[in-house]
Amino acid sequence: MERKEWPLWEVFIRSKQGLDHRHVGSLHAVDAKQAVQMARDVYTRRMEGVSIWVVPSEAITASDPDDKAEMFDPMADKVYRHPTFYKLPKEVEHM
């Protein structure tokens, strides 16, 4: 059967100049142009944004939640990557 549902898009909004675009939600639209128009109507009705990105949902590749341990746990024991690991002599006030 032919698919009648419009493709799904993920919407990213820059809330003000100088900040990152952030994922705000998703919507269905026939193409990118319409997705931007609809994102404007749905996600920026109260001046929530100054710029919009839309990305076809199927174009996103995500890490597998089942691999969470292998992917992210190795970082847990590398405390020396954080500045707080290093005890400075009292004489050094700012570093």
Partner: peptide, 19 residues
Amino acid sequence: GGHGLYLYAAAETLGVSRD
């Protein structure tokens, strides 16, 4: 109308289609 959209989108993440 927008609230309906946010919620349909949330439900769609559970594997059910809008249709």
